Computed example of a mutant assay.
Amino acid sequence: MKNSNLSFIKTTCYNVFIIGFLFLLTACNNGPSKDKTNKTATKDTVKFETIYWNVKAIHPNGQSLDIKMFDNAGESFDIKAIQNSDQDNLLDVKAIVDGEILPVKVLVSKNQYTPVVAITDAGSAYKLKAITPEGEEFEIIGVVRFGNVVIIKALTSKGKFYGVKAISPTGQLNDIKGIKINSQDREMTLKGHSIYAHVKAMHPSDNEDNFTLPKKNITKGPYKSNFERIIWNIKAITPDGKNLDIKAIDAKGNIFDVKAIQDSKQHSFMDIKALVEGTELPVKILQRSTSEEYAPIKAIGTDGTIYDIKALTEDQKKLDIKGISRSGNIIHVKAIDENGEFYGVKAFAPDGKLNAVKGIKIFNRTVEMKVQGHPVYAHLKAISQ
């Protein structure tokens, strides 16, 4: 009897061990994966091996000039555009100093041109300069502002402007631009410095380089040159090519237009607004709750009122507009039908030009800012495709 009981106990212990091991193994396999989901916002893309784009000034004869950051001792450091995802539409531009990655910004200035600098953790701001083969240095500056975009150039000793580009290892070209989220001169303060614009490498856009330099200081607001603003329509595109209106809807069911606003000659980076009773309200991607699969997109009233953003079908069904995934600085925006299918969202100009509607992240943090107390995950913009 004792042997029988001992055998039973051994068998039971063995079974318990096996079941416990299998449970532990299953729990490990079903644990959260960093590659699959970002619980604070939208679904992340898979891991991506970082690509460093060279940042150069382009001489009129086609020669490229190195652009470097120079410290107080005269030592130079690399400037790179950093592609850390499968999108190359909006890349951060950074200085790389002894393995440390420093932000590059356009500063607020009372001078005619605004300096482009790298800012250290200690608060030092060091200028960016282009270098000729002969060792001559040309300062990198913000020249003029069109709406949300600041044109960046290299300024020669003879007062000529050279274009500034990011060049990928495979030869792709992006423009180096300053972009603004805030309509005011000062975007933010960083390490004691007033920031005028954030420096990014973006897809090229027509007409931005063709400008007559304004006589006024560019820090006195956007240079519009008597530009008559253009209103772009925002639409969701179905698989069969139909365009669905996208609207803002309040709690009572009242419906308002949602438009992209072109208030200068540039249309590579435009605000998207809800037009509510004569007021243009910001449209943002908000931080999603743990119960939401995708990030909500809302218009925010001056008193904090939230307006839903929906696509309307022909039979007046309301489809959600969401931020569904992230690629680097870009949040992909889609309309979602009742079957869970995704529809693209675009901005259409009256003359037929087309921009993509995307969420834009400026900072490497979950919450970009708060608007009337609401946590903003990304800024909704119409950008060049």
Score class of each variant (00 low, 15 high):
residue 342 F to G: 00
residue 263 D to S: 15
residue 157 S to A: 14
residue 64 S to P: 00
residue 316 Q to F: 13
residue 281 L to N: 07
residue 181 I to T: 03
residue 8 F to H: 09
residue 115 P to Y: 07
residue 288 R to I: 13
residue 164 V to I: 03
residue 112 Q to D: 05
residue 180 K to Q: 10
residue 58 I to R: 00
residue 210 N to C: 06
residue 66 D to R: 11
residue 128 L to K: 02
residue 334 K to V: 02
residue 300 I to M: 12
residue 83 Q to K: 12
residue 190 L to P: 09
residue 259 K to G: 06
residue 376 V to D: 02
residue 105 K to Y: 12
residue 284 K to W: 12
residue 354 L to Y: 01
residue 119 I to C: 14
residue 88 D to H: 05
residue 1 M to Y: 08
residue 372 Q to T: 02
residue 318 K to R: 15
residue 209 D to Q: 04
residue 204 P to G: 06
residue 146 F to A: 10
residue 109 S to P: 04
residue 73 A to Q: 15
residue 44 D to M: 10
residue 384 S to C: 05
residue 330 I to D: 03
residue 287 Q to R: 01
residue 299 A to V: 03
residue 190 L to G: 09
residue 362 I to W: 08
residue 132 T to A: 03
residue 103 P to G: 13
residue 66 D to L: 09
residue 330 I to M: 11
residue 165 K to R: 09
residue 254 N to A: 12
residue 181 I to F: 06
residue 68 K to L: 12
residue 74 G to I: 04
residue 347 A to Q: 05
residue 333 V to L: 01
residue 267 H to C: 13
residue 250 D to V: 11
residue 373 G to H: 02
residue 299 A to I: 04
residue 238 T to A: 00
residue 140 I to T: 08
residue 332 H to N: 14
residue 194 S to A: 12
residue 111 N to E: 13
residue 28 C to I: 15
residue 186 R to M: 10
residue 379 H to K: 10
residue 74 G to S: 04
residue 57 A to L: 01
residue 371 V to N: 07
residue 61 N to S: 01
residue 191 K to R: 15
residue 151 I to C: 02
residue 217 N to A: 12
residue 9 I to V: 13
residue 369 M to Y: 01
residue 177 K to L: 15
residue 183 S to G: 09
residue 111 N to M: 14
residue 366 T to K: 09
residue 293 E to T: 05
residue 290 T to K: 11
residue 171 G to W: 03
residue 368 E to F: 09
residue 341 E to M: 14
residue 303 D to F: 08
residue 145 R to K: 12
residue 294 Y to A: 14
residue 317 K to R: 07
residue 347 A to R: 01
residue 376 V to W: 01
residue 135 G to M: 05
residue 173 L to Q: 14
residue 94 K to T: 14
residue 185 D to M: 05
residue 29 N to R: 07
residue 315 D to S: 09
residue 74 G to R: 11
residue 246 I to P: 00
residue 146 F to R: 01
residue 36 K to D: 13
residue 328 G to L: 10
residue 17 F to H: 09
residue 56 K to V: 07
residue 87 Q to L: 10
residue 121 D to L: 15
residue 167 I to Y: 09
residue 312 L to P: 00
residue 62 G to K: 00
residue 175 D to F: 15
residue 297 I to W: 07
residue 185 D to S: 04
residue 51 I to N: 14
residue 335 A to C: 00
residue 167 I to A: 08
residue 68 K to A: 03
residue 163 G to V: 00
residue 168 S to G: 02
residue 34 K to D: 12
residue 277 E to K: 07
residue 169 P to Y: 06
residue 338 E to T: 05
residue 101 I to Q: 11
residue 293 E to L: 10
residue 346 K to P: 01
residue 379 H to N: 11
residue 175 D to E: 09
residue 324 I to N: 02
residue 227 F to G: 03
residue 160 K to W: 00
residue 69 M to I: 08
residue 143 V to K: 02
residue 164 V to K: 04
residue 241 G to A: 10
residue 228 E to F: 11
residue 100 E to N: 11
residue 74 G to P: 02
residue 106 V to C: 06
residue 87 Q to R: 01
residue 365 R to I: 10
residue 358 K to S: 03
